[in-house]
Design a protein around this nucleic acid. Structure first.
Length: 439
RNA sequence: GGACAGGUGGCCGAGUGGUUGAAGGCGCUAGUCUCGAAAACUAGUAUAGGUGUAAGCCUAUCGAGGGUUCGAAUCCCUCCCUGUCCGCCA
């Protein structure tokens, strides 16, 4: 959401920002709607003031008359009664115009930061660094084949109960997924200063509005029969911990992390990444969220990217980090870095983390503010979120990068403490049911 | 899920439908006093919005949203949240 005063004062700044995202100018319409709204609001307030004045008089007079009445009181009451229709009409008008303006504003994306490169899509993202060398492999298999050989990745069984885009993991691979998640959480809490959180997975409209998924992206979400929504990322739950709050500056930054399942309807992704675990309706993700002061968020973004990269470094997975261009950034973001891990099975770098600074965009929607010691005024916090990292995709990356010629998968050193002595996942022979896997 | 009881400023807590943005207390800030501090005393102490060069003026806000009324913290309805008891349950 945006500061209307700022839009009034700097319409060009906003229009050029939206233009960089490929949108036409918006401020002319915003300002026209705002103008109408304020005109109506002023008229309403003036009439309210008159009514309040008269009603106060009535109170005073009735007090003197001990609750009785006289001509003067009757005249005043008649006067106020005359305002009634006008007042109701103005009130309705004011509501209508405010709602219209709000609805319009709530569908507009954040303004890109000046350091974000221009561009229309993925191809225009700018690589900032590349860490680690892909190991040369002869005919590397992709995670689906590796998983099948290990007897631990089963899409058919998942499909029976849940349909497409679900997976069922067994035995060693199930444990590996858990190991990855534990390792990441331990690293963020133990080395990166994040506080581990266990959060609701079902949230209300307000929470999703706050982080920007609603009202525009309802189609991407799952909704329960009770009107609650399943979180598409724990960014929603972690960021909304400060919904409506006024924090003290010295409590900041808040650095929160959580491991949660994420639920995405993947509407509009038909035909995309249909093979394997890349794009599922449900997946685990370790998320990082930072709540900072307004002048600290860009430094925090670099720090957060570093935390996510550190996970991949410890796992010794080759990756590259890119700055998303204006055309590829998400709705709420002011600036975003994606981390792409190398997948031998695809011979390509694929997104495994996305770290964004949202500036005050979400904070305005959530009314999340902070106060500096000794200052009266409140300011909006800045919010950042980043995957640290996506567990499912990390599992894929480990399987593909640590596969051996014999079909086994070596456990990365960093994960060994979490694997109960298992150092390698071995392929199993053909099984009749396919439902038994090695440990 | 059922039955009660509640939700008032940073906190506690009063509030008969009428000059109540809201008593009183605590806390906080400043001043007086003091060598200094404490105590005491005095004063100040919400947020958002509209309007104005400004001082200011106006509007809204007592969990949220509707309604009744000339006028609502107060009466009515719906919802949310908290507490207690019962039921159910991992």
């Amino acid at each position: 959401m945006f500061d209307l005063k700022l839009i009034r004062d700097n319409p060009d700044f906003f229009d050029s920002g939206w233009k960089r995202r490929g949108l036409p100018p918006q401020t002319a319409q915003i300002l026209a709607m705002d103008e109408t709204r304020r005109t109506v609001m002023t008229a309403l307030q003036e009439l309210l003031a008159k009514r309040n004045e008269a009603s106060k008089q009535i109170g005073v007079l009735k007090g003197k008359l001990k609750g009785g009445t006289n001509d003067e009181v009757e005249a005043l009451m008649a006067e106020v009664a005359g305002y009634k229709d006008k007042l109701a009409a103005l009130e309705e008008d004011e509501k209508k115009h405010s709602a219209a303006l709000n609805d319009f504003l709530s569908t507009l994306p954040n303004i890109p930061h000046e350091t974000v490169p221009d561009g229309g899509g993925e191809k225009d993202n700018v690589e900032v660094r590349r860490i680690g060398q892909p190991k040369g492999m002869n005919n590397p298999k992709d995670h689906v084949d590796i998983g099948a050989a290990l007897g631990g990745m089963d899409f058919e069984t998942a499909a029976k109960m849940s349909g497409a885009r679900f997976v069922l993991l067994r035995s060693g691979i199930a444990r590996l997924e858990r190991a990855i998640a534990q390792f990441m959480l331990d690293t963020h809490t133990g080395e990166h200063g994040y506080t581990e959180m266990s959060v609701p997975l079902l949230v209300r409209d307000e929470a999703l509005y706050g982080t920007g998924q609603l009202p525009k992206f309802a189609d991407d979400l799952f909704k329960t029969g009770n009107g609650l929504w399943m979180i598409p990322t724990s960014e929603v739950s972690l960021t909304n911990t400060v919904l409506g709050d006024i924090l003290e500056a010295d409590e900041l930054p808040l650095r929160l992390t959580a491991l949660t399942p994420c639920f995405r309807s993947e509407a509009g992704a038909a035909g995309k990444d249909t093979r394997g675990m890349i794009r599922q309706h449900q997946f685990y993700k370790v998320e990082m969220v930072s709540i900072t002061e307004e002048d600290k968020s860009m430094d925090e973004l670099d720090r957060m990217v570093g935390c996510a990269e550190n996970i991949l470094k410890k796992l010794d997975l080759p990756f590259r980090t890119v700055t998303l261009c204006t055309g590829d950034m998400g709705f709420s973001a002011q600036k975003t870095f994606d981390i792409e891990v190398f997948l031998p099975g695809q011979n390509a770098y694929r997104e495994i983390s996305s770290c964004s600074n949202c500036g005050d965009f979400q904070a305005r929607r959530m009314m999340a503010r902070y106060k500096k010691a000794g200052e009266k005024a409140t300011r909006f916090v800045h919010t950042l979120n980043g995957s640290g990292v996506a567990v499912g995709r990390c599992l894929i990356a480990v399987l593909e990068n640590y596969q051996q010629a014999d079909g086994s998968v070596v456990i990365p050193d960093a994960l060994k403490p979490y694997m109960g002595g298992v150092e390698k996942l071995e392929p199993v022979g053909e099984r009749k049911s396919g439902k038994v896997a090695n440990a």
